[in-house]
Amino acid sequence: MEAAASLGDQMRSAALDLLYIRNVTATCRQHVHQVPDYTRQAVPAFLLLALLEFVLLQTRHRGRAAFADHTVSLASGMVHLVVSAGCGFLPVWAYATIWQRWRLFELPWDSVGVWWLTLVGVDFCFYWQHRALHEVNCLWAMHQAHHSSEYFNLSAAQRQPVLQTFVTGVFYLPLAVLGVPPAMWLSHRAFNFIYQFWIHTELVGSLGPLELVFNTASHHRVHHASNPRYLDRNYGGFLIVWDRLFGTFCAEAEPPTYGLVHNVDSFDLWTVQLGAFARVAAAYSVPARAALQLYVAAHGTLLGVALRW
């Protein structure tokens, strides 16, 4: 009975976690080593919900749940967890070093106001991280694995690019300079990631007025679609307001076609994860200037101005 009650408490907690519903004071920590591994704690809920969705899609005969596709997504998630466990300290170390040496303000680690500031700040940084991952070729070569599934389901949320761990932390360093405590940043980065799990589904329709502010399944279906009008849209993590402000928002209008513009056509884990680097590697057969342009070429409005010449 106690085990069942404990499991029930964990599932209720996981359900609240997926919606970014947190006890603010309970999640404030002074030191990084005190921060629980929220993402790893959420993994059982991820797997259970993905399994339930798979069964539901199969019973409805919707043809939206290929077993091989689920397998490579789950395998990617497991490899990502292993890489994060082994190398995840690198962005934390970089952030903490910047914070210790060059922070501009002394922000308290146990402040409710700083907690909410960090929530917004982390999502703002995630927007630019996510946008760069799409608009810079060498970063897209890493990130495309997450978009390679031709299905859109909760398993696809776990198809995480294994190499992103080494580069994405740099986008959050402005928060360290502003003085956001490392433990608070680390917690919110996990919360933001966990929230994005449930928006990878076709089973949730429009959420009405909530879609004006929050990233939802409808908005994220657009992001994962390869329809021409949907390409490079809806980069927000928890909030959709950044896309509305910076001109990258698109509402769901026509049925999405999922996957890449040029699909991988493979269920091999490493082909999915690393196959796009072949195109980038081909750049080295052309003159150095052209190779560099191809390596960092950007087609987005802001990044294109910065990276093209």
Rank of each mutant, 00 (worst) to 15 (best):
W309Y: 12
V180T: 06
P182L: 06
G208W: 09
G179A: 05
W242T: 03
V222R: 01
L212G: 12
V296A: 04
L294S: 07
A183P: 07
F191R: 03
L203S: 12
V272P: 01
A278Y: 10
W242D: 02
N234F: 04
I194D: 01
G247R: 05
F246C: 14
N227I: 05
V241G: 11
C250Y: 13
A306H: 09
V241S: 09
L207M: 14
A176H: 01
H224A: 01
V280C: 02
F277C: 13
V264C: 14
H219V: 10
H262F: 02
F277I: 11
E211M: 10
A276T: 01
A276K: 03
V204Q: 11
F193S: 12
A278S: 12
Y235R: 02
Q293E: 11
T216V: 01
H299D: 15
D268V: 08
V286M: 10
A306Q: 10
S187L: 09
V180I: 15
D243R: 03
L239E: 05
R221V: 10
F238G: 02
E211H: 04
G300F: 05
H188K: 02
E211C: 04
G275Y: 01
A176L: 02
R189H: 12
T271A: 11
R221I: 02
V213F: 06
H224F: 03
L207D: 12
W270H: 08
H200D: 01
G300Y: 07
H219S: 13
L210G: 04
H200R: 05
L231Y: 11
F238R: 06
P287S: 13
P287Q: 07
Y295R: 14
F238H: 03
A288I: 10
V280Q: 09
L292S: 06
E252K: 07
T201V: 07
G237I: 03
R221L: 08
E211F: 08
A251L: 06
F277S: 12
Q196H: 07
N192K: 08
H223L: 00
H220L: 04
N234V: 08
L307Q: 07
H299A: 13
A282V: 05
F249W: 10
A290P: 04
I240E: 00
A291W: 10
I194K: 00
A288E: 10
S266L: 02
P228M: 06
L186I: 07
L178Y: 09
A297C: 14
L207P: 14
L274G: 05
V204N: 05
G236K: 00
V222W: 01
G300Q: 02
H224T: 00
P209R: 04
T248I: 15
F191P: 01
L178P: 09
Q196S: 10
F249H: 05
A290S: 12
L260T: 03
Q196C: 09
H299P: 04
R221Y: 08
Q293T: 06
H262S: 13
S285N: 15
F246Y: 13
W198T: 03
G247L: 13
A306N: 08
W185N: 03
T271Q: 12
H219P: 07
V261S: 11
H224S: 05
E254A: 10
V177R: 11
T257H: 10
D232W: 05
F267Y: 14
L269G: 02
L294A: 09
R244E: 03
Q196N: 07
